[in-house]
């Protein structure tokens, strides 16, 4: 408020000086004093009015809300289920219990900071990461028609099954890329499929909601970003699925039998690996006859399995599509 008054005064003085300078050649000191006095009076009056108005409409707010908001990432991604970070902070303070609240972006570190501010205990959630469950690249999944509408997955999905024979697969217009506030998803120009940058991904879930084919899942994050998942959502019968895409899951259930941890379920001709139960033993991967189970960021296998299973250039860093 002081700053405002000062600003008004300065501005007024300058304005009056300028006006004086512009109109008359001689400098009129009386006029100058009047102008300054009048503008100062207006300034003081405004300040007084503002002060009383501010008092009148003052709303008490828990100072802890500001403190909580301060430690939040400020991404306003909505991944917590609240409309932005401020709303999440309000919810935390109001509830006073963090067991059901989680900021997916900040993760456990931020949640424990919030817990300190509020003097309660935070629930630790295992960090998650977005995974795109389609591997139907341009070569694996031939086009059956040409889509010529607006470049939006939502629009194409509402219109029809898509420009390949697989109605479950990725459409590749990048609705997930647009939805991601952290630049963690990009479309690979070679495959036409989205790829998640595991380190940038905060598991806010925006892409999960944006994908009309429900291809993206938040899966448990494993050390070194290792993951094993069924990169397919095709629940057509095996023959139909295979015809549409070389790497489709045909629901043969071989992986189901191979899994020692009961992490795999097969429903509607489609296998699913539960990331909370999966111990990343990699046994299912070699069983899969259509290569629809992907293992990522693993070191190369020690023992060569069956056909062209191992490629020599596999390193810990390369994305190892198991062949």
């Amino acid at each position: 408020m002081k700053r405002l008054t000062a600003l008004i005064l300065t501005f007024g003085t300058c304005a009056s000086l300028y006006a004086q300078d512009g109109d008359a050649k001689s400098f009129n000191i009386d006029g100058f004093i009047y102008t300054v006095a009048a503008l100062s009076a207006i300034g003081v009056l405004c300040a007084v009015i503002l002060y009383f108005v501010a008092q009148k409409f003052k709303v008490y707010e828990d100072p802890r809300i500001d403190a909580v908001e301060g430690v939040l990432p400020g991404a306003n991604c909505g991944g917590c289920g609240c409309a932005g970070c401020r709303a999440f902070a309000e919810t935390c303070v109001k509830k006073g219990d963090l067991s059901t609240l989680q900021c997916p972006v900040g993760g456990n570190a931020v949640m424990s900071q919030i817990a300190d501010i509020l003097g309660v205990k935070a629930a630790t959630a295992s960090p998650r990461v977005a995974v795109v469950r389609c591997n139907g690249s341009c070569t694996a999944r031939p086009r059956t028609n040409r889509y010529d509408g607006a470049a939006s997955c939502a629009i194409e999905a509402a219109l029809y099954g898509g420009d390949t024979a697989c109605q479950y697969g990725c459409l590749g217009h990048g609705d997930c890329v647009t939805a991601c506030l952290f630049n963690a998803i990009s479309i690979n120009p070679d495959t036409g499929l989205p790829e998640v940058d595991d380190d940038a991904c905060t598991a806010c879930g925006a892409c999960v909601k944006a994908c009309p084919k429900r291809l993206i899942e938040l899966r448990k994050k494993a050390p070194k970003n290792r993951k094993i998942y069924v990169a397919c959502r095709n629940s057509d019968k095996g023959a139909t699925a295979r015809k549409a895409c070389n790497v489709a899951c045909i629901g043969c259930s071989k992986c189901l039998k191979a899994c020692p941890h009961e992490a795999i379920t097969v429903e509607n001709f489609l296998a699913y690996i539960d990331s909370d139960k999966c111990k990343l033993c990699r046994k299912c991967v070699t069983e899969c006859s259509t290569n629809s189970i992907r293992e990522l960021n693993f070191p190369p296998r020690k023992v060569a399995v069956s056909d062209a299973a191992t490629t020599p250039e596999k390193t810990a860093e390369t994305v190892t599509d198991t062949i």
Binding site: A150, S152, I155, A158
Partner: peptide, 12 residues
């Protein structure tokens, strides 16, 4: 411009 494409999406 694909006007109706987006309007249809919005409408849905």
């Amino acid at each position: 411009r694909p006007l109706l494409d987006y309007i249809r999406l919005g409408k849905a």
